Every structure is written in C-alpha cells, then in structure tokens.
Computed example of a mutant assay.
Amino acid sequence: MHQFSYADIVSDAVNLARQHEAEAMDHAVELLERAKTKGSRSREATDAVLYLRRLWSYLIEDLASPDNDLPDKLRADLISIGLWIIKEAEQIRRNESENFDGLIEINAIIRAGLA
C-alpha cells in the first residue's frame, strides 16, 4: 500500500490545476486564431470573446482570493493583464478593434508560463 504525504497530494493538485489552466489557455488561443481569420464580426469572434471573458473572470476571481498562494505582486500583475484582456475582447465584440494578435500573444505567453 502506498502512503502519500499531504504535501505530495497538494503538489499534485496544484500541478493538475496548472495543467487545466494551460489547456484552457490553449483553447483560448485556438479560438482567437480562428476568429482572427474570420474577422471581428464572425461567430468565431463572438465565441472567442465570450470564452475569454469567462476564463479571465474566473482567473481574476481566483487571483483575488486571499487563499491564492502566488506572490502579491504576481497576482496583481496577472489581474491587470486579465482586465486588459477583458477590455480588449469587449472592444472586439463592439467592433471597435481587431486586436486578435495582441490577445493571442498575451494568452500564449501566459500559457507558456503555466507549462
């Protein structure tokens, strides 16, 4: 019978959470790339924007939680990035921007940081 320490279990849970976050970022980048080829008035753009808003709203809520173990400065920086992403996505939704490249780049950088 295997004995697992609490630290091992917590570490595994953190690694699994990061893996899920990286997969969510992968999906966001895929949606944004499809939207970029179809344009800001496409169904693909709407899907990408809605997904980004949900994803980053969840991440911001988690980052703002006092239970989040990341350093305060990193949490604040990620929250700022998330707010910028939501704002940019909203501008695409309102046909005021087509900054898919910026959103793709930032989400890809964050995804790489989770790996």
Results as ranks from 00 to 15, higher is better:
Y58M: 14
A64F: 11
S80D: 15
D67Y: 06
L74W: 06
I60L: 11
A76I: 13
I86H: 03
L55T: 00
P71V: 03
S65T: 12
D67I: 02
A76W: 14
L78G: 05
I85W: 01
E61T: 11
S65Q: 10
I85P: 00
P66C: 00
L70P: 03
R54V: 02
I86Y: 08
W56D: 00
L63R: 00
D72C: 07
L55Q: 01
S65N: 14
N68G: 08
Y58S: 10
D69P: 05
I85N: 02
L70K: 04
L74D: 06
I79A: 13
L74G: 06
L70V: 03
L83T: 14
L78T: 05
W56C: 02
R54Q: 09
Y58G: 11
I79H: 06
L70E: 02
E61W: 12
A64D: 15
D77A: 14
S80L: 13
L78E: 08
L78V: 06
I86N: 09
D67A: 07
K87G: 08
I79E: 09
A64E: 15
N68M: 09
L83N: 12
Y58D: 08
P66Q: 04
L63V: 02
I86A: 08
D67M: 06
A64N: 15
S65Y: 06
W56N: 04
L74E: 11
W56G: 01
G82D: 01
I81S: 08
K73Q: 12
D62W: 01
R54A: 03
Y58I: 10
L74A: 11
I81R: 07
K87P: 00
L70F: 04
L63F: 02
K87D: 09
S65E: 06
E61I: 04
W56R: 10
S65K: 07
D72L: 13
A76H: 14
K87S: 07
E61M: 10
I85L: 13
A76E: 15
S80C: 08
P66N: 05
D67F: 01
S65R: 11
L55I: 00
I60V: 15
P71D: 12
L74Q: 11
P71F: 01
I79W: 08
Y58K: 12
W84R: 13
S57C: 05
S80T: 15
R54T: 04
R75H: 07
D72V: 12
